[in-house]
Design a binder for these strands. Structure first.
Lengths: 199, 199
DNA sequence: TTTTTTGTACTGACCAGTCAGTTCATAAAG
DNA sequence: CTTTATGAACTGACTGGTCAGTACAAAAAA
């Protein structure tokens, strides 16, 4: 069972909230936000319906909280990996971190893709763009500074491209090649990114 | 106003169906499938609710038809561009075709991303994978055959990666750099893909 | 004692799908 | 040319069910 969260919180209330996040992300990944009922979330979390409203007030607040939480974890995972001797090593590590993150939290990846475009949670999505894309942009800028990359590279577009590329591959892995290890995917992506596909 | 369809059909019925596709894709891009009501689709299409059911039977059938239609257009656009002297020129042209397609049908791109994962329309999505990813895979295989690309390249993963990269950039363009011309995005993507980012 | 959770019952809004009836283009009959 | 007939396409009020959110008394935890 995949959850969006490491179940490390202490305190009864915090634990309840995390279980609700876990139940919600699974159901929303399967059915979408609107089709997922509060009753179903409560049932899968093993909690009474009233508890959902006691903790979050509205269905929308539950979902916003879930997004914030997941985006926070993703940003932390990426920026934690962004260290490295050279910028290209850092890029390597960040791509791997993103692949691993979505390997573990695949349901969150699908929820993100499916629900990103709704204005209701613009803020959480803005945070994603700022933090996650920011990590890639930072690494690429570092690469420019190191002279490893041509200095007229459009860093923001490139960051978006790399993020989207890794996200797509991570999500499609199970549909396309379920038993291919992510190290293999990582190698293919890095081949593409470092221009090693050629020759 | 963006529609998914070139309005070329003749005949009253065919025209009605196309207008419903156009209305549906806009609304679903804004709100998601479940949150989009048949009433709203009918109203935006300038048609009575009963007409939707007369033409499609169910809301789901309308959406499946829309997906099939859009995927067909996309596949045609990509495979139409896949000619070219060398494989790398063909890749260049296919990337550009995909950017242009989603520039024109941006709402369809968001619908595709958001709804791809639902089992209800597995078939239309399978068609997308077969046709659109197939075009990229074909070009990459040609590149391998021409010796332009190392022969142990994982062609299917690479095809997925490139498709996802272009899709993401196309969709994010308006949020991120609305006035950057798509030729610029195309150049950045090709820089990444041909290893020209380095040096 | 206070906070949190439970379980059940309820409400009001909303929505997919239905159906009896209307419109209209075309064509055959007068 | 005019009338009548036909059927495909369209209409919109209505129905039956669903669901977010409320209410609250009682229990369990802290």
């Amino acid at each position: 069972m995949t959850t969006v969260v490491p179940m490390t919180a202490s305190g009864r209330r915090a634990e309840t909230r995390l279980r609700l996040f876990g139940a919600a992300v699974e159901l929303i990944a399967e059915q979408g936000y609107t089709a997922t009922t509060v009753d179903a979330i409560a049932e899968r979390a093993g909690v009474a319906k009233g508890t959902v409203f006691y903790n979050f007030g509205t269905k929308e607040a539950l979902f916003s909280g879930l997004l914030d939480h997941g985006v926070g974890l993703l940003s932390a995972a990426l920026s934690g990996a962004a260290a490295g001797e050279t910028a290209l090593e850092a890029l390597d590590a960040v791509v791997m971190a993103q692949l691993r993150f979505f390997e573990e939290y695949g349901a969150f990846a699908r929820v993100l893709l499916a629900e990103m475009w709704r204005t209701a949670w613009r803020d959480a999505v803005a945070g994603l763009r700022r933090d996650a894309l920011g990590v890639y942009a930072g690494v690429l800028r570092r690469a420019v500074a190191e002279g490893a990359v041509r200095d007229d590279l459009d860093v923001e577009t490139a960051a978006t491209a790399v993020f989207g590329m890794v996200l797509t591959v991570a999500i499609e892995r199970k549909a396309l090649h379920p038993d291919r290890p992510i190290e293999r995917l990582h190698a293919t992506l890095m081949d593409l990114l470092r221009g090693r596909a050629t020759g």
